[in-house]
């Protein structure tokens, strides 16, 4: 890894990447929605060779006692060994839990869903929104792919039929009513390698870099979630520079959601 690290560092000093990108250029991104027949809201996101499948499931349950009139949002990520030789079977590792929680933070703190509109009967019944993230191929930057997949799946999701008197969800029957999505938070992740900053790290860049910073922002420039990872550090100026770039880069990605 030290050989590859030195090579990538040298390239970045020349403002270059090994795949021909510029430091702050994202790989090609594609979003498809409605890809899982069983799910009332789903998306497949590709960022370069990274691919993530996201599916929404809705259920009816009890609200939390401290938020009796709000629906419940649950985000889970499974780093299945199908997607990478680095993933193992077994209970979720810290990486999977971090991925789920960072994705969750962007959606939740960006107020992507109007959770009050998910209330069916205050204190008793609310919609529970499960978002499951499954990477199908990891070539780096799963965080941005998951976050984009989650918001794309939510944006297109509809409620299943619910019979209130029988308290029964018909999971196979989808209504035409869309989920109350009111904001589109977008996550962008930056790496730092030997002092150079860059956007959208590949798997090889992730293995070599010192640290990463992921920032979720809204269209109006509001910053709604951040996560630093890796053993390295960032200076204050670097963080401010990344924040500005995150706001700018997320606007381009948001356009893909239409």
């Amino acid at each position: 890894m030290k050989v590859i690290r030195n090579y990538l560092a040298e390239l970045l000093k020349m403002q270059k990447r090994e795949d021909g990108r510029e430091p702050f250029q994202c790989r090609e991104v594609s979003i498809e929605t409605g890809v899982i027949a069983r799910s009332p809201g789903s998306a497949r996101v590709k960022i370069g060779d990274t691919e993530v499948l996201v599916g929404v499931k809705l259920d009816v349950g009890e609200p939390f006692p401290d938020t009796p009139n709000e629906g419940v949002l649950i985000i889970n990520a499974e780093l299945i060994p199908l997607a990478s030789p680095d993933f193992e079977t077994g209970p979720p590792k810290p990486e999977a839990i971090e991925l789920a929680r960072v994705t969750d933070r962007g959606i939740r703190e960006g107020h992507a869903i109007d959770v009050e509109k998910l209330c069916i009967k205050k204190g008793e019944k609310v919609w529970m929104v499960n978002i499951d993230v499954y990477p199908m191929n990891d070539d780096g930057n799963l965080i941005d792919a998951s976050a984009l997949g989650a918001i794309a799946a939510l944006k297109t999701a509809v409620f299943p039929k619910y019979d209130e008197s029988a308290d029964k969800v018909e999971y196979k029957e989808f209504t035409k009513t869309k989920l109350p999505v009111k904001a589109l938070p977008i996550m962008t992740t930056f790496g730092k390698l030997a002092g150079s900053l860059f956007l959208d790290p590949t798997h090889r860049e992730e293995k070599a870099f010192d640290s990463r910073l992921s920032i979720s922002t809204l269209d109006d420039g509001t910053v709604c979630a951040m996560q630093k990872g890796g053993f390295g550090t960032f200076t204050k100026d670097e963080v401010l520079q990344i924040m500005g770039l995150a706001i700018q880069k997320s606007k381009e990605l948001r356009k893909l959601l239409k």
């Binding site: 499948l53 499931k57 889970n76 499960n130 499951d132 499954y134 196979k172």
Partner: peptide, 13 residues
């Protein structure tokens, strides 16, 4: 393995 969203009701991972 069945993905959580692969069945009508969510399958526990």
């Amino acid at each position: 393995d069945m993905a959580a969203f692969s069945t009508p009701e969510r399958a526990r991972p």
